[in-house]
């Protein structure tokens, strides 16, 4: 049961930001994480500010000059159902496809998935490797932060009270870039990621990005991978160096879902599979 609270549904961003000034108010997006928390934890907001009445947050646009812009309210299923997106950003739509169930994906929003700041948020790895910027709004105005700056710790974001993610900006990765997403679950059904991973490889621009989720208190973008890639494109050597880097960078824990040891094992397996996929194939479901 959810304890008594107040609810309001502003029609504009400005109005929403005003409302979020009220003490103990919380923004409500898809609700698929928040409502579970309200039922199970001692979190007691006085006011829920439903963001779904704000048209500004609904945009989903793919343009040649500005890349992909995703309004915070866009649901997982809206991402998946956009044919254009599936071909342009397969790792992103593959990741969205693994979020919860069909019913969850009809409600869960991109903004909500990120704000929840889970270390294993499925959208994080693809958005990390794509150099995504978040547009954060408050009464003081808008600011842009790189997506990596959103995570403070497990389920803790760096947003100030009264701040909202309004838009997710994903630059074009370039025509030669390939990307892929992999996720380890306990069953073939719906599950949180034990480990998830996205990679981007652009042989023309010499870019190589790997982001690993579920293996630290935040998603981990492996550092210095562009340089590694530029130094050696030999697949075996690159794989070995990335493996060593990943091994040294991640800090997985033992928990109810998996042991740290198994997570490390999966990271090694996934990294090799990811690099193979990036070299030959970027389509597919990425369920492993």
């Amino acid at each position: 049961m959810i304890a008594p609270l107040a609810y309001t549904k502003p029609r504009s961003l400005a109005e929403a930001l005003e409302l979020l000034q009220i003490a103990h108010s919380l923004p409500l997006a898809g609700g698929t994480d928040l409502l579970v928390e309200l039922k199970k934890s001692n979190k007691r907001p006085a006011l829920l500010v439903d963001l779904k009445g704000i048209p500004d947050l609904d945009e989903l646009a793919l343009t040649a000059d500005r890349g992909l812009r995703i309004g915070a309210n866009v649901t997982m299923n809206r991402l998946i159902e956009s044919g254009e997106l599936v071909s342009a950003f397969p790792a992103l739509t593959d990741a969205a496809m693994t979020v919860g169930t069909d019913q969850i994906r009809n409600r869960a929003t991109v903004g909500g998935n990120l704000c929840h700041a889970s270390p294993s948020a499925d959208l994080a790895p693809p958005l990390f490797v794509l150099d995504t910027q978040l547009v954060v709004a408050s009464l003081q105005g808008e600011r842009r932060i790189p997506i990596s700056a959103l995570w403070q710790g497990a389920k803790q974001n760096t947003l100030q009270p009264g701040e909202l993610i309004v838009q997710i900006e994903v630059p074009w990765p370039g025509a030669a870039a390939k990307m892929a997403f992999l996720k380890k679950m306990r069953t073939a059904g719906h599950d949180l990621a034990l480990v998830n991973m996205a990679g981007l490889l652009d042989p023309v621009q010499g870019r190589c990005r790997i982001c690993i989720g579920g293996c630290a208190c935040t998603p981990v973008l492996l550092p210095g991978t562009d340089t590694l890639y530029q130094e050696s494109r030999d697949p075996d050597q690159l794989t070995a160096r990335l493996l060593a880097l990943a091994e040294a960078t991640i800090v997985p824990i033992d928990d109810v879902r998996a042991s740290a040891r198994y997570r490390r094992e999966i990271v090694a397996v996934f990294l090799q599979r990811l690099l193979k996929l990036l070299a030959v194939e970027t389509k597919g479901w990425g369920r492993c």
């Binding site: 069953t187 059904g189 109810v256």
Partner: peptide, 9 residues
């Protein structure tokens, strides 16, 4: 965290 088979399993 207690998983039972789904239609995918």
């Amino acid at each position: 965290d207690y998983k039972i088979p789904t239609a995918r399993d």
